[in-house]
Amino acid sequence: MRFDAGTHPSSSVQSVTTRIIIPAKELAVRDGLSNLLERLPLKALSQDDRGTIEIVLAEALNNIVEHAYARFEGEIEISLSLAGHELKCLITDWGLPMPDQTVPAGELLPLGAFEDLPEGGFGWHLIRTLSKDLSYRRIGDQNLLSFKLDTKQSQH
């Protein structure tokens, strides 16, 4: 796991940034999330915000492990930047592109009868519900997924 952190004055609002690179493995995602949550900028946020951010990051990262790196191994880079009440997240991987090069709609399946209850398909719904400005781009051999989250508490 590799880290990089800093404070950058960007226009009038100062932003606190951090960057981490992890192997695309489920256990590395767990460790990476726990490391990110213990570091600025996430460390300074409320429990509620940290919970929301952990859900969205976990879903995005697990999706990359499961799909983008379904056929080969690789790394994932996560960059976070908090300015005021807005957290920007950029996740880069070098795996397979998303199908149709777009982010899945993430519509919840009908709950239906007991034996038909869905056991998956919640991930993109959670990401779309909890984040904003979700964007995906394929540039060369890179997948770039970005989104923003509103936080209740700034870094100050």
């Binding site: 919970g51 056991e119 998956g120």
Partner: peptide, 20 residues
């Protein structure tokens, strides 16, 4: 303290495995 969609899927699967 934390459950992701895979964890949720596992809880749902565990309920279904109990039968009706």
């Amino acid at each position: 303290n934390f459950l992701d969609s895979s964890g949720l899927g596992a809880v749902v699967a565990s309920m279904k495995a109990l039968g009706p």
